[in-house]
Amino acid sequence: MRILHTSDWHVGRTFHGHPTLPALAGVLDALAREVREREVDVVAVAGDVFDSATPSSEAFAVLGAALRGIREAGAQLVVTSGNHDSPARLGFQSEFAAFGGVHIVTRAEDHAEPVTLRGRDGVPVDFYGIPFLEPALIRHLWPDEPLRSQADALRFAMRNVRAAAAASAHRSVVLAHCFAAGGQAEASDAERDLSAGGLDVVPLSVFDGVDYAALGHIHGRAALAEHVRYSGAPLHYSFSEAGKPRGAWLVELGADGPAEVQWVDLPVPRALAVITGELDELLTDAALEAHRDDWVAAILTDRTRPLDAMRKLQSRFPHCASLEHRPAVVDSDGARGYRERVGGKDRPDPEVIAAFLAHVRNGEGPSPAEAELIAELVAERAAAEQTA
């Protein structure tokens, strides 16, 4: 059987306020073409199908078109819910969808009930969909189990999966949405709800005993073991993901023996670039022309924050989506108090104002034009006080 492992579609997510639905639709259409060209039997989607528990009608339309395209390309689908999904909404009419070859598993109680599918070789494979298991929401289902963390929940679920797989004797694939420890899994800024203190970290050993574990939740590809992998998201959803490839794992599951796995690249609609420097440099550096059509995150190193910087940057980089001021030079005289900075009460007002500007501008005082304006305003104020 040939399986394409994908996850974290996040249908409906925005990128720094910009819609991603058209770009995602194009990537998922490319995924369907890979399904057809590579004669994929099953597409496994390991959670976070939607970005929100209340997806828009437009998001449903993109999902519907993607599922239809994959089915028309010849593959069935097994889909599980992630922490961003509403199990009830994603799983609505899942019983009827299964008749059309789209098997959606969102109920925690169904994690050990396999979806048994056959590939072109006719060999049956059991797919076990484990939805995102939030301990607080599932304890009432198994009150005798100590489900204090997600690791506890996954241990419990995988114990049941292994028992079911042993009774079946078919080859087994599990889909799970979690943060597993081991290998080279690395969270980006786009993954939310990762708990601190290790409570939601699932040990890699939990996934022993199955032929392949298709994981979701981490947005970059990772191989924790030969049979345990993250596919990552099909789009870049954070600048921390810049440079990471987008795609899916193609898993060849034979009648016996280990799975053979290879990476399948998917198109990147718009590359991400992080550029650093003073504003004037970023606006004139010819080497940066290569990023004109990229999503751009600009880190400005000017000593003071330039005025109207985003508008100026977008005149050269139309898709500049993020701006951060990170001065290269920071006033090191931070130990002095503010009173000491600006001087005593007998210090002339223009000097006090100049010292204040230097205090808030990392040591850079007023420009000549600002100094002239300050002197004019101080003189006007002094004249007004004398005539009062």
Rank of each mutant, 00 (worst) to 15 (best):
R2A: 12
S7F: 00
D8M: 08
H10T: 09
H10Q: 10
V11Y: 02
R13E: 08
G26H: 11
V35N: 05
R38S: 12
V40W: 05
V43S: 09
V45M: 07
G47R: 03
G47Y: 12
D48C: 07
D48K: 01
A53S: 15
S57I: 14
L63T: 10
A65E: 13
A75Q: 12
V79H: 01
N83A: 05
H84Q: 10
D85I: 08
A88K: 06
L90R: 03
L90S: 03
L90V: 07
L90W: 05
F92M: 14
F96R: 14
A97Y: 07
V105L: 05
T106H: 00
T106W: 01
R107K: 14
E113R: 03
G119H: 01
G122C: 15
P124W: 10
V125L: 07
V125R: 13
D126Q: 03
I130L: 12
P131E: 08
L133Y: 06
L141G: 07
P146H: 11
R148P: 03
S149W: 10
Q150K: 02
D152E: 05
L154Y: 15
A167I: 00
R171Q: 06
V173P: 00
V174S: 03
A180H: 00
G183C: 07
E191S: 00
E191P: 05
A196P: 13
L204E: 13
S205Q: 11
V206H: 05
F207E: 03
V210Q: 08
A214K: 00
I218A: 07
H219A: 04
G220M: 05
A225I: 10
H227N: 13
V228G: 04
G232N: 09
G232K: 09
A233N: 09
S238L: 03
E241D: 11
A242E: 08
G243N: 06
K244Q: 14
A259V: 13
W263P: 12
D265F: 13
D265I: 13
D265L: 12
L266S: 11
I275D: 02
L279G: 04
E281P: 00
L282F: 08
L288F: 10
A290M: 06
H291D: 04
D294V: 02
I299Y: 02
P306R: 02
K312Q: 02
Q314T: 06
R316T: 01
H319G: 01
H319I: 04
P327W: 04
A328M: 08
V330W: 08
D333V: 11
D333T: 15
G334P: 12
R339P: 02
R339E: 14
G344I: 09
K345W: 06
P350L: 11
V352H: 00
I353H: 01
A354I: 01
N362Q: 09
E364H: 03
P366T: 14
S367P: 04
P368G: 06
P368V: 11
I374N: 09
L377F: 13
A382K: 14
A384Q: 15
Q386W: 03
Q386C: 10
T387D: 14
